[in-house]
């Protein structure tokens, strides 16, 4: 079996009918090749906060082995990653941190909300816990469970690969279909999202950089080395 056989059927582009995937020559579009490469080499950023992060470790560990999906290069810097796993409860204190890290990821980017706490606050309906990360950032795949099984996460990664293949990405904050999202009640997602969007717009209008870009770093003082060299 040659390399070309292995690649057979991988570079299908629905917008271009002239795909020829057999024999000695494959004809396709650059777009299809790029998407194939992108989905086969996801660099996840684990934003692990709580119990879910432990199951995430099981996913990347030797038994479940996320490397089989080409996604084993965990990057703890958001600037080097394209998929964020939000694994665990996000309390209000962590909200701005989550937003900062999401903003620091380069486009295109995807987000998996792992577990019920990240998706809806879970059974922590209380004074310091965000009721779903989609109050702040868009989410592509929600994985249920407390914590989700590693199999569930593998399914989520495959969903993300599908989305990459079809160029889908969560454009706007979602979750409007969920209970409590209609703007009534104690946990008003829409109001919260609108508030954050307004906040971002105000920052832009005031000429401020987005959150996460450090502005008040003190310049290093000039040190006079001259006296010592002589």
């Amino acid at each position: 079996m040659g390399v070309l056989d292995l690649l057979k059927g991988k570079f299908v582009d629905p917008t271009y009918a002239g795909v020829h995937g057999g024999g000695d020559i494959i004809t396709t579009t650059v777009d299809a090749v790029v998407k194939w490469g992108r989905k086969s080499s996801i660099w996840p950023m684990p934003f692990g906060t709580a119990c879910c992060a432990i199951e995430f470790m099981a996913l990347t560990g030797s038994h479940y082995d996320l490397a089989r999906f080409g996604a084993e290069v965990l990057r703890f810097s958001p600037r080097q990653s394209d998929l964020m796993f939000v694994a665990g409860t996000i309390p209000d204190k962590l909200g701005p941190v989550l937003k900062t890290i999401y903003d620091q990821m380069p486009e295109p980017k995807w987000v998996i909300s792992m577990g019920v706490c990240a998706s809806s606050g879970g059974f922590y309906r209380s004074y310091h816990v965000m009721q779903g990360i989609d109050e702040l950032i868009p989410v592509d795949v929600y994985v249920p469970g407390c914590p989700p099984s590693p199999e569930g996460l593998v399914a989520a990664v495959m969903k993300i690969q599908e989305k990459i293949q079809t160029s889908q990405q969560a454009g706007a904050p979602q979750g409007a279909h969920r209970v409590g999202a209609n703007g009534e009640g104690m946990y008003d997602r829409r109001a919260r999202r609108a508030e954050w969007a307004k906040d971002d717009a105000e920052r832009r209008a005031a000429g401020l950089p987005p959150r996460g870009v450090l502005t008040d770093l003190k310049p290093e003082p000039e040190i006079d080395h001259g006296a010592h060299h002589g």
């Binding site: 209000d92 204190k93 909200g95 701005p96 941190v97 309906r125 209380s126 004074y127 919260r192």
Partner: peptide, 17 residues
């Protein structure tokens, strides 16, 4: 928040850490 007369679900939003 742990005072008995503090409502359990009363949140406050933090913008800047």
């Amino acid at each position: 928040p742990l005072r008995k007369d503090y409502p359990q679900g009363q949140r406050h939003v933090l913008k800047e850490p």
